[in-house]
Design a protein around this nucleic acid. Structure first.
Lengths: 210, 210, 210, 210
DNA sequence: CATGAATGAGTCTTCATTCAT
DNA sequence: GATGAATGAAGACTCATTCAT
């Protein structure tokens, strides 16, 4: 009851962990509760002790992982828009996502499955808000699009990295040798910079040609 | 009634049409063959007359829709890389995708479901090839990432537009009034330009004649 | 119309041929009309031009293959029972079946599928009649059983031969080297002799120990 | 009602029981899981709780029923071949099968359906081993055939008895009155003796001490 | 905390069969 | 003689979920 982080049961935590893993590897629909339970060495019924619903697990995932986004959003809300604030926003987002890359990937790749679920909404709303904060008020379509691209860059980095892994043997990986050492961390670093460049052209609210 | 004996059943084509529609609206896994069949006014078995497998329908979709990508790839292969060629490549891709926006969206949002399927491979391979053509040989991670983002911009434009549509009443659409008139066509136009800007900074690490 | 063996269409014959082949290889239920049609290079619908029903094909098989049994039965009906007649009956049966071994095997291994079908009945009745002719009137259970075994010996020879073939690599074939040369024909020859021995103890109607 | 909290659900056992019943009555392919479930008063899904697969049910059947064969095989392996041992082997097999007659019949009549299934293999391997033990080493084709026939006699007895039962009214049962009293037990008794006679002529090609 | 047993709805798929052409 | 298109019934199997214990 009382103490916030009492070790009450780490099962709940492990469920979230394993679920995120499987969900991002195989997709939400492709991952069955049996699979999750098996990998945890418990029964399906046990999952239902901790979560009311499959979707509820996703909600759990979001709650545990979305904290940095929320902080960034909170910070963003207290600033007024300026190019510098925009850059800082992107920077914070990219850094916050560094350790949560799989989460981003998971939500991007499972939109249809989560479209109507509370968890899906919860996440999409956060992304939409972030995008709005980045492009600021009264932005036109181009600028909104740039903001979107800037934020999605982190996710796309994942896409690129995956090519290397999943290009199982049939040649033509995106990387030849130059990339042998690109760890996920390095990739995210690079993604941050590219994201800044992409977002960088959003000049607002006073356009240059006024 | 029109033509007496129907021009030899366009059912196959209609299946592809309707399937793409449903697949992109609800996702691949979330769309059952019954649903497709019902909307077409035929039986599930009829689908199996025309396609060996649910996945085979997706393959059909790809085949009918990917022609412009293939042409662009073909063109790209015959050029040698240069900034101008890169821009032209992006331009052609964006234009080709203009009428096929749902296809892009469909594949992006259903990666997990299609990961191991022939159809999924077929499409991902095309995308990977396009990306490689855009960034050209010997590009580093940042440049590859830019290339990726440039091409994905078209898809992200879809994401933005959808917010407007699917934000069914519960607030927080990305667009308030300013976007009331942004037709899909206009959006793609804008996406093309943004894509060009994003791709634009790829400047090859000074070739021999620097 | 007229001439008995006019070459009207050898398709019918080929259907029977191929069907028997597939039916005995894989079983009746496990063989679909599509499979038969494919192997013949025609459409399923074509099969329905020649046969009213899947079961009707089996009937066709029986009709074309059961002639020798019918002749043997006919002959048997005109004799009165004696040990010599019994032996001759077995001999004729075994010889007649020599070229139709697959047929026997097919019916034996597909009894459940054909239990209630006309074709199944047609064949089982023939076998029952043969058995009755072999053991003669007023035989007791033991003698009937012997008669049955004598006739089934031909089929069991098939079982043995198959072991050799289908024991795909996991060792322990029924035959080591001594059997390398046992062709189907030789096997049937041997089966005939064993069948005679097995049937041979049926001494009837005047038992020796009376 | 009887025992308060049921002895922990004998459902698994009942599934096996009912399945064997239906499988032998109608054949493996002709029996649907719905049928089994219905007769048990449970849902199809319940079957899948206890067995991974339809085929797995057959495996369950084999495991529960094949114990006596395994014991006989075990015993046979520890003897060295002699006519007496051979007779004892056949005797034990026949006795062991007395209560499991339907099992034998089931496997014989469903070979095609089970040919490639684990359950089918499991059973066929046992039979092949038994046959080898009966005819001993260095037997020729005739002797192997005799061994086979000896063991199959038990099954053939079933065939005969069935004629009586399933010849439902449309004439030609193998038995008229003389068999009214032949219970299954008696039949197996007779089969045992016939099997012994049939196996009896296997006389090994004069070993060293001839 | 967790399990064992079971459910009901739904999935994809296959098949024998029909019929207009 | 044969095909192309379609059907209706059924099949095996999977899944999220529930509940008594």
């Amino acid at each position: 009851m009382g103490t916030p982080h009492s070790p009450r049961s780490d099962t709940r935590a492990r469920i979230i962990e394993v679920s995120l893993e499987l969900f991002s590897e195989q997709g939400y629909e492709q991952t069955s509760l049996r699979e999750i339970a098996d990998r945890l060495g418990v029964t399906k019924a046990a999952l239902y002790y901790h979560f009311k619903t499959k979707d509820d697990i996703v909600l759990g995932i979001v709650e545990r992982m979305a904290a940095p986004i929320d902080e960034t959003i909170e910070w963003g809300r207290q600033q007024s828009w300026s190019p510098g604030m925009r850059d800082e926003l992107i920077r914070r987002f990219a850094d916050g996502m560094a350790e949560r890359a799989p989460l981003l990937r998971f939500f991007h790749e499972n939109q249809p499955a989560l479209r109507d679920s509370p968890a899906g909404l919860a996440f999409r709303n956060r992304m939409v808000t972030m995008i709005q904060l980045v492009h600021g008020p009264e932005a036109d379509f181009r600028e909104r699009l740039r903001a979107t691209m800037a934020l999605f860059t982190v996710h796309s980095a994942m896409f690129l990295l995956k090519q290397d892994t999943s290009g199982c043997g049939h040649g033509d990986s995106v990387w030849g040798e130059p990339l042998q050492a690109a760890t996920l961390a390095e990739a995210i670093g690079a993604a941050r910079e590219v994201a800044l460049e992409i977002g960088g052209r959003i000049s607002h609210p006073a356009p240059a040609h006024s």
